[in-house]
Design a protein around this nucleic acid. Structure first.
Lengths: 66, 66
DNA sequence: GCATTATGTAACTTATATGTTACATTGATA
DNA sequence: TATCAATGTAACATATAAGTTACATAATGC
């Protein structure tokens, strides 16, 4: 699950810990999502978007790969 | 978890069963997502978007509610 | 009426997202 | 060099997304 969470987070000058607190998960969860090792739930994706002022498409969209 | 899956699906003239087969889940999962009783994973959201030719924002975006 | 299709949902199981605790590594900085 | 902050990750526990089976209802067509 590749995504732009890390870019969005860093552009907001937030640490993983800070982002985690704002969206209500642990630092480990943010780390795993940024590393593409987790398939986050929609609710968490939305919380991350709200925290970095971006939309789902901007942070999580990816074209279908055959 | 409100969303526009049902509208998008019906506009494509797909039954829950057909959409479920295209995205690789069961009919029950589609039903529960449409009813807002499930918090789907990002991967499933993307699959649904691909199936109905829409983006995440079009089908799953919602403004933060305080 | 009787079948058939589409949908809602309940009980139970399985897979996995997420939490908890803990330890290691890297980079900056005093 | 020695902290310390930020990050990666591993083992295990918990919550819940998703599957399986099954049954019910509404709508449609025979």
């Amino acid at each position: 699950m590749e995504n732009k969470v890390k870019v969005a987070r860093v552009s907001y000058d937030l640490t993983q810990q800070e982002l985690a607190e704002r969206v209500g998960v642990t630092r480990q969860t943010i780390s795993l999502i940024e590393k593409g090792r987790y398939n986050p739930t929609l609710k968490l994706c939305l919380e991350i978007c709200y925290a970095v002022n971006k939309t789902l498409d901007e942070v999580f969209w990816q074209e279908r790969k055959e």
